[in-house]
Amino acid sequence: MRRAISKLKPLWHGLVLMGFVLGVLGVLDAVPVFVAAVPPLVLITLIGLGVVLGSVHPRAEEHEPCAMAAPVRGRWAALNTPGQQLPSHGTRFLGQYCAIDILRPTTADTPAKVRKAWRGSRPEEYLSFDAPVHAMAPGVVTRTWSGSRDHRARNTWQGLLYMMSIEGVFRSVAGQRALLGNHVIVRHDDGTAAVYAHLRRGSLSVQAGQRVGVGGQLGEVGNTGNTSEPHLHVHLMDRADPHTAAGLKMTWENITRSGEIEPSLQEIAKEPAENAVRSMPRNGEIFEA
């Protein structure tokens, strides 16, 4: 039942968007006559239905983390990681229960997380940008998207506010491509599937139907979709369709952890929650693959 409801996610999100738009029109006193004629209780019920059903996501049975190879090489830092808590991104939407974001450790030349400027930093200014992304396990590519542009970082106060309000709402409603940006989905030989998101436009080196081996290059890190700065987002699912998939726990076998914390992420480097995947790096922790 959860999968059937989750498959209609665009419909539920459409109802929520309708409520958001009507709210804005109401503030502007510009609600269309045909909408004003509908009883308020009916509109409230439809919007409430969208909120409730839109929060229904598939869940996997309790299991040991699936062993994978890391999707990158070299030194990286973890953020919004299952090594800190589950759900790692605060949601199970699109199978993200055990998702992880990773980015290159900062240097003196890395743009600040938040700065005073009119525009955000260019993606090319970040070390993570255009780093190779590798397959975590062997399988077949089931879906790719490469039509999203690499946007500037949301590292100004106005940029962050825009991302967390207007942009965030519309990307959530627009769905998979708007959130993940350029991405690749690989269905593994054991039936699980992995999502690699926020890839650089023009960097994809695979296409749907193509078989890839563990470590095979899929593309490069970009800044597309719902992202504040260039980084790689990956997560594991129990099937290749994110709308009907349940997120799965995973662990990377080929990483070395020193316990070192990325300075720019020091504020979020806390002790892991009880349900954290202890074999994965926690928030802010630097690892090498």
Rank of each mutant, 00 (worst) to 15 (best):
S172W: 02
M163I: 08
D241R: 05
R239C: 15
L236V: 11
V173I: 04
R187K: 15
R239P: 02
E253R: 13
G216A: 13
S165C: 06
A240L: 05
M250E: 00
T256W: 06
D190H: 05
W252A: 09
P230D: 05
A246L: 10
D238G: 12
Y162Q: 03
L179T: 09
R187W: 09
P263T: 08
Y162M: 06
L236H: 09
R211W: 05
S258Q: 13
T192Q: 13
T244D: 06
R177G: 04
A197C: 09
R171P: 01
G219K: 05
G219T: 04
D150E: 10
L160F: 03
A246E: 07
L204M: 06
L161N: 00
G209C: 08
F170L: 13
A153I: 03
A178H: 02
P263M: 08
Y196Q: 09
I268M: 07
G168D: 01
R149P: 07
E253N: 11
S264L: 14
G219S: 04
G259Q: 04
G247M: 04
E229K: 06
A208Q: 09
P272N: 06
H188K: 12
A269Q: 04
Q158S: 13
V184R: 10
V206G: 07
A178C: 06
V214L: 02
F170Q: 09
A193Q: 12
G159F: 05
S258H: 14
D189I: 11
G168N: 01
M164K: 12
R154C: 12
N155M: 04
L179M: 14
H231A: 11
E274R: 15
R200H: 08
M164G: 01
H183K: 10
E167R: 07
H233A: 14
E271L: 13
F170K: 02
F170I: 11
G209M: 07
G168L: 02
G216W: 00
L199T: 13
L161Q: 00
Q207T: 14
L180S: 12
G181K: 11
D190M: 05
P242N: 11
V186K: 03
Q266L: 14
